[in-house]
Write a protein that binds this DNA or RNA. Structure first.
Lengths: 224, 224
DNA sequence: CTAGCATATATTGTATACAAAATACATGAT
DNA sequence: ATCATGTATTTTGTATACAATATATGCTAG
């Protein structure tokens, strides 16, 4: 584990929530790697809190699929097998298509503008080599689409599925030669939404997800 | 709250898990009603444990969408609005269709037999007037289909969505005149799987879910 | 009688203490 | 050397204590 886990205390939230968000970020960014143990006392010391909020945060991570607990042994960051990834992809494809269909019908001009902005910001970020920023702008782009569905339940579920893979996806984003493809796919999605071409969007999204699958698969194989 | 919450301690599980399952059951069965407060001390006393496992169980319920916590105020059983229900149904329809498609391709003869058995058991249970049993056999029927997808992630997600509605569905199952419809839909699904007719299954599932929606809606309106 | 405040009570949030189990390690027998 | 066993250490599981906050109660002023 990297040793710069620190709590962001600005908001007046229960510590369990702060810890939860901190650990979640650390897992998604790869600071806490799949298989790494989550030891309560250690984390508590590092974050300067007691075990209680740590334990509660772990229970939440567990329910999100980001941690796995073995009774009386402890928790660790969830690992993904190839099968897990395929399962996740299968579901994500269905939900992405659903999201695209709904968004296609409901998206407002305002949201379309937002989407174009998000696309540009992603494009700019790919030129900065700032990985964190690239990942963030990419997430933001898709968030606009998901939010346009006006279905928070769907948004939550898709985000959860994305999380499962994102921590294995860093490498993909490191490789600059993927950027043109990514950008092209983003453009296609925007175009599809503008022209309300459901099949075009669904197809672009499928490609988008499938392209990442290969990269993630490599990471998973390394881990195993 | 009814006062017969008791722990089923046979398995040597951490108390948090036992408490989690106990509370979840109570919520799904309607013993703990939407909006009802989940007070730690009270529950702890009732179940004969300390607050710690109760709190951890609540964190898990929260992540499953069965409980809602307001910081420094406490947790309560999650309420569903009509909008929530529509959102859930929208996602469930997509996932049900996905499950049906996969199951259609992969279901084994063994699983088909299981399904027929489950259907018969449901039919028998509808004649017993034992609500708990009726609900259980219905769940079991659908479980066979979901498990046939060989996609645990999908199973988890669909089950989660079903949970959200099940606790509002008791009334629907109380009304005997719904049984013939339910049975007919089950038969259609089985028939579709046997003949690998994807469209037939998807259609039957859609109807199946839609029929319940109306009943659930009534309950939700009453709650509001 | 009501509004507003003070106080008491109930409830959650967090830390800590203690118990039980798992793990690591050392020792000794074969 | 290897395996088994016993002991020490670590780590989780659970209970409890204490602090902070929210809620309820009752009182006084108007």
């Amino acid at each position: 584990m990297t040793d710069h886990l620190t709590l962001n205390m600005d908001a007046y939230l229960p510590l369990r929530d702060v810890v939860f968000h901190t650990l979640r970020e650390a897992i998604l960014k790869g600071d806490l790697k799949p298989g790494e143990r989550l030891m309560e006392l250690q984390l508590a010391a590092k974050l300067g809190v007691s075990r209680t909020p740590i334990r509660e945060a772990i229970r939440m991570l567990e329910q999100e699929g980001l941690a796995v607990t073995i009774p009386r042994k402890g928790a660790e960051v969830a690992k993904m097998t190839e099968k897990d990834m395929q399962d996740v992809l299968q579901v994500r494809e269905a939900l992405d298509e659903l999201a695209a269909n709904i968004a296609c019908e409901r998206i407002t001009q305002e949201e379309l503008d937002e989407l174009v902005t998000a696309m540009h910001e992603f494009e700019i970020s790919t030129r900065t080599k700032d990985l964190k920023r690239i990942a963030e702008t990419d997430v933001k782009f898709h968030d606009v689409i998901y939010r346009a569905t006006d279905n928070p339940k769907l948004v939550t579920m898709v985000n959860n599925l994305r999380e499962q893979m994102y921590r294995y996806r860093v490498e993909y984003l490191k490789d600059e030669k993927n950027y043109p493809t990514l950008l092209k796919e983003h453009k296609e999605i925007v175009e599809g939404l503008k022209t309300q071409n459901k099949e075009m969007i669904a197809e672009a999204m499928r490609k988008h997800v499938a392209n990442q699958a290969a990269a993630v698969q490599v990471m998973i194989k390394e881990q195993e």
